[in-house]
């Protein structure tokens, strides 16, 4: 929906940011953001042509999302306008302005998965986790997302959790997978923002 907001002026964008602040206690944990971590990224791209998107991607790689204070820092150190940074960050689906859960569940909604009833998978996981699509659970363990296409069309319908793809699912099987992870994670009981890695070849 944010895609339509190209004409939205900075006032509205500030509203968006404040909404993030208000939405729950977990978001924008200003104290947790270590601004020093972003220095090498700024150093690398400062003053270079077309650097805006790589800067934001770099920030998100570090923090898992782009905290407000990081926007401020990038803007003041590179001279890029905050307006442009927010504009780009809200345009592309990749960028997040809220922290994500420890485990990101990406349910594929490509065409092949859709005709094999991917809707039911999202619905059932929504019910199980008690979150809406795109939201994070209160314990910050799970974030549920819909993605356009994971490119594993022959395994449709599928979803991706961390580095693992689960194919040929139905609602029940998908919930079972999430349930198992939840059981395991609850035993460990250490939710944080680890980043999943791709299987290395």
């Amino acid at each position: 929906m944010f895609r339509f907001s190209f004409f939205i002026n900075s006032i509205k964008m500030n509203m968006r940011v404040s909404r993030i602040k208000l939405s729950s206690g977990i978001s924008e944990p200003g104290l947790d953001v270590d601004l020093l971590l972003i220095d090498p990224v700024i150093e690398r791209y400062k003053g270079k042509q077309g650097n805006l998107i790589p800067l934001l991607q770099g920030a998100q790689n570090i923090y898992g999302y782009i905290p407000k204070s990081v926007f401020d820092k990038i803007s003041s150190e590179t001279g890029l306008k905050k307006n442009d940074l927010y504009g780009v960050a809200t345009f592309y689906a990749q960028f997040r302005l809220k922290p994500v859960g420890k485990v990101v569940v990406r349910v594929c909604h490509g065409t092949a998965c859709h005709v094999q009833n991917a809707t039911k998978i999202t619905e059932d996981i929504q019910t199980f986790l008690n979150v809406k699509d795109g939201e994070t659970t209160e314990d910050r363990l799970f974030t549920l997302e819909s993605v356009a296409c994971l490119g594993c069309c022959s395994l449709a319908p599928c979803m991706m959790i961390g580095d693992e793809t689960f194919g040929k699912l139905n609602g029940k099987k998908a919930v079972e997978v999430v349930k198992n992870i939840k059981r395991k994670e609850t035993l460990d009981n250490k939710p944080n923002q680890s980043k999943p890695e791709l299987w290395k070849t």
């Binding site: 994971l150 490119g151 594993c152 022959s154 395994l155 599928c158 793809t165 194919g167 299987w199 070849t201």
Partner: peptide, 12 residues
């Protein structure tokens, strides 16, 4: 075969 879909199917 270690393409994305192979890996997804467990080739790794």
């Amino acid at each position: 075969g270690l393409g994305s879909c192979g890996i997804a199917a467990g080739a790794g």
